[in-house]
Design a protein around this nucleic acid. Structure first.
Lengths: 170, 170
DNA sequence: CGGAACAAGACCGGTTTGGTCTGATTCACC
DNA sequence: GGTGAATCAGACCAAACCGGTCTTGTTCCG
């Protein structure tokens, strides 16, 4: 009952890409650093997005990823489904009807309703819409740093998170 | 992004229990067979429900499980949370704020909305409500068998399912 | 043409899921 | 009351999935 981290990272990566001029190519390491997610992992995730036709990849030096469509034309639902496969709250609700209970089962109906709700929410929200009210990870960090560490929780909370990503020495 | 099988089985078990007179004690094997779920597994699941105060357990011969409240007073949401723990579509939304993105993150808001939707659906549905439109597993089987195998899909589909539960010889 | 830069995807450890099996506990019956 | 069958309780286990890294193979630049 969780949206996987992969989907979350995918969204963050797309958000970072959306901040650039339309069709701009950016390499995955930069995007990853901008949103504070593991670079290699984001790379793998973007492969799925590439296969789904949401982004285009360019190899070789000077390469990277770019948006195929405009942010307004990309829906959160399709990003999640590109990464995790079709949303199915239950086996009953997957493509082939592999349900033990069939017609008489009240649960399938209920789960179906809940599933429709979540799909509705994700389906009507576009990446563009999120961009409007999203502050990138680094931006947020810089802002809280210069505003002065009023809430020590926020300031101290940010540091250990980054270290996890940056892989401390060894 | 799935409701676990444990929650599904829990609901089915409660549905079976609801079919009996209020407060009746029934043993887990009977309930399990009635809905076609693995008996031992259902036993384990009902322990959680017991700890959550949804059912009461009685040990020893003549023992079993019984409902503490009426089916109308038990909500699907609370059953799921008893089995899986609090519903949280994302880490951000768990009790302690372990979110990498904090205030500036647009995703948290979106996920929160989706989560509220699904909680609303599960929260307003009671076990009693489901009982009304639910046919038990064995009932359904008997019905499709005597009505005649018109849709061969349904008829043939049902058989292999049961064998899985009944554990064929060996 | 050599090599740096990059995506692609094989790989891997840890956690969760789904489930079984033994054993502790209770009650019925003698 | 003692004995034993019946029943829950919880330890245990295999397989799948999640989150992430590392090597490998392409591609492009100089």
């Amino acid at each position: 009952m969780q949206v996987t981290r992969a989907s979350e990272y995918a969204m963050l990566g797309l958000l970072a890409l959306s901040r650039r001029p339309a069709g701009a190519v950016e390499m995955v390491d930069v995007l990853a650093h901008e949103e504070g997610v593991p670079p290699s992992f984001l790379g793998k995730i973007f492969q799925s997005l590439s296969r789904a036709g949401i982004v285009r990849s360019a190899r070789g030096s000077g390469g990277g990823f770019s948006l195929v469509r405009t942010p307004a034309e990309i829906t959160v639902l399709e990003v999640i489904e590109a990464v995790e496969g079709p949303i199915a709250l239950q086996r009953c609700l997957e493509t082939d009807t592999d349900c033990t209970h069939r017609e008489g089962c009240a649960l399938c109906g209920l789960f179906s309703e809940a599933q429709d709700r979540v799909k509705e929410v994700f389906g009507r929200t576009s990446v563009a819409e999120l961009t409007r009210r999203h502050t990138s990870f680094v931006e947020h960090q810089a802002r809280t740093a210069q505003t002065g560490p009023k809430h020590s929780r926020t300031a101290t909370g940010a540091k250990p998170k980054r270290s996890k990503t940056l892989k401390l020495s060894t």
